[in-house]
């Protein structure tokens, strides 16, 4: 029987415009709505659909972050995951370190499949799933747009440049999901209420014995430059001159 581990991340709500902190060290997350990463919502939905189809037995959601990251777990539980694991830290954890911690979680939980969002919409790193597969030495399929679970294997169609590629992976395996895999449901009211009673186990990040010191240094975060006003040209010749000056002709 198939057990699925679904890592989820709490990020700035996708409806909101990110604002840079005044000291330019990152995005300001005080007093703003945070939600489950939309790609992670898709991976939970896919796991729940497999369970509803009788093809999966248990779905465990796991999140690494501050106590508030529970909200992402609760969102997953409301969709239909069975239980949650919160690995608490207030530090920034880079994708490789996330993958190392998840590899430890895989050791204890022994899932047959790990579903991850292809990337988190806050830093768009797109690394965790790949790193995790490498650390575990498991087969991986990224950017899944369809997924069929077979006996001891999973068939995944990936969205790649120039078309679709279909892979068959022996289990256990890591799959990262893309936008078109499914459309997550609206959680039902009874499931929202039940999700509050589903168990969430909390662990401190130190228990994993992984050095999470960042390897990267953020020098500055700033908003995209605003577009400068254009100029009016009088003749076609002037236009061509200007384009040449700008180096585009």
């Amino acid at each position: 029987m198939t057990k699925i581990l679904v890592p989820v991340k709490l990020v700035l709500d996708y409806n909101l415009k990110a604002r840079v902190k005044s000291d330019k060290t990152g995005i300001d997350l005080t007093n703003v709505k945070l939600s489950i990463n939309p790609f992670d919502e898709i991976s939970v939905e896919e796991a729940v659909r497999l369970k509803e189809a009788g093809k999966a037995t248990e779905i465990v959601v796991v999140s690494i972050g501050p106590a508030k990251a529970q909200d992402a777990l609760r969102s997953g539980l409301a969709i239909g995951a069975d239980r949650g694991i919160l690995i608490e830290t207030t530090e920034v954890v880079e994708p490789l370190n996330v993958a190392k911690i998840l590899a430890k979680v895989v050791e204890t939980e022994k899932p047959d499949l790990v579903f991850l969002g292809k990337q988190a919409i806050d830093d768009d790193s797109n690394q965790t799933g790949q790193s995790l597969a490498a650390l575990l030495d498991w087969p991986q399929a990224t950017f899944a747009s369809t997924l069929v679970l077979e006996d001891g294997a999973v068939q995944v169609t990936r969205e790649v440049d120039g078309g679709h590629q279909t892979l068959k992976l022996a289990l256990p395996a890591v799959v990262t999901v893309d936008l078109r895999l499914n459309e997550p449901r609206y959680p039902t009211l009874p499931n929202i209420m039940k999700s509050k009673k589903k168990p969430i186990a909390t662990q401190k990040i130190a228990e994993f014995g992984i050095d999470i010191t960042p390897r990267l240094k953020v020098i500055e975060v700033h908003e995209p430059p605003t577009r400068k006003a254009g100029i009016k040209v009088k003749t076609a010749a002037e236009l061509v001159d200007n384009l040449k000056k700008a180096g585009v002709l």
Binding site: R74, A78, Y186, P187, L189, I192, M193, S195, K196
Partner: peptide
């Protein structure tokens, strides 16, 4: 007894999403 702030928030957020999306 079981109506916590946390539950209230989830219910309102999901209801809001449903109304906006459906």
């Amino acid at each position: 007894n079981e109506v916590s702030n946390d539950l209230v928030q989830s219910v309102l957020e999901e209801a809001g999403r449903f109304c906006a999306g459906v």
